[in-house]
Amino acid sequence: MFCLMTLNPLSLLKALPGSVAQGMIWGIMALGVYITFRILDFPDLTVDGSIATGAAVSVMLIRGGVSPLLSLPVAFLAGMLAGLVTGLLNTVLGIPGILASILTQISLYSVNLIIMGKSNQPVSVDNYPLVVALRYVTEGGTGRLLFFVGVILFLLALVAVLYWYFGTEQGQAIRATGCNDNMARAQGINTNFTKVVALMISNGLVGLCGGMYAQFQGAADINMGRGAIVTGLAAVIIGEVLFGKFASKRKLAFAYTLTAVILGAVIYYMVYQFVLWLNMPSENMKLFSAIVVAIFLSVPNLKEKLAAKKGVA
């Protein structure tokens, strides 16, 4: 390894808290992707747009004088609105799900530009009392401790709320819709309604993540959502592969699974940081992410094929 000598382990260690923090925030987005991809069985690409929408809304509100904390529920609502559009395109207008979500995603690019006025809007921690910021993590001390304790408590609360919701009558109706929509309709569930609700909740979480992430990095950027779905999927799949078996055996299996998805996002960003540290040029990272997701998604299928071949022989 010709370049190993130039690598500094200390710099990796120093970057670790930052990538863990980034992963935790993206974990919120991964929860949203889990809801559409796994629970609803709907390939929702809206998220690439709605994450930037949440960011744009939060940053512009803060710059307009709204409290950073208050801007986050608004970012959540903005994301829900994006999910509503995809849902209506799919259910009322009958456009296939993946295409409906692409249409929303593309239109959100313009919408986000309109919200921000230009392609990048900064929001500095020097000028505003941001809820989360990279500065809190890098400065260390009580600031860092408070940051991590706060974010972890918030994530646990989020997992608890989602656990509760998907155990209610309405949440069960959504799960049934995703699992078997014929059965759902036969049992009187309005599957159009449940689809729209699930898309709204999912994109609400994604919008919230966008708002938090914009504060964390100190800016909203029109391109920050590009490939977000791949990151979200990577988190979901890494979480499932590493902790799936462990989670499914527990009493509160669903809560463990959601936590695993968040951990998946954290691990994704730790690996991401590690690969960057190996001097991988940053422009290659999207390729890297896509390959990781492709490999993890294909493993179950390849296993099946292999088993089938063995069965014949």
């Binding site: 799960r175 049934a176 059965m183 049992q187 009187g188």
Partner: peptide, 28 residues
């Protein structure tokens, strides 16, 4: 076709129990 495979037996039955009712935020 008649059941949701990824949900457990009591959840499937509970969904059927609410046929014709609005699905609320009460526990399932």
């Amino acid at each position: 076709t008649g059941t949701a495979a990824s949900m457990n037996i009591e959840e499937n039955l509970a969904i059927a129990c609410r046929r014709g009712q609005s699905r609320t935020l009460k526990w399932g």
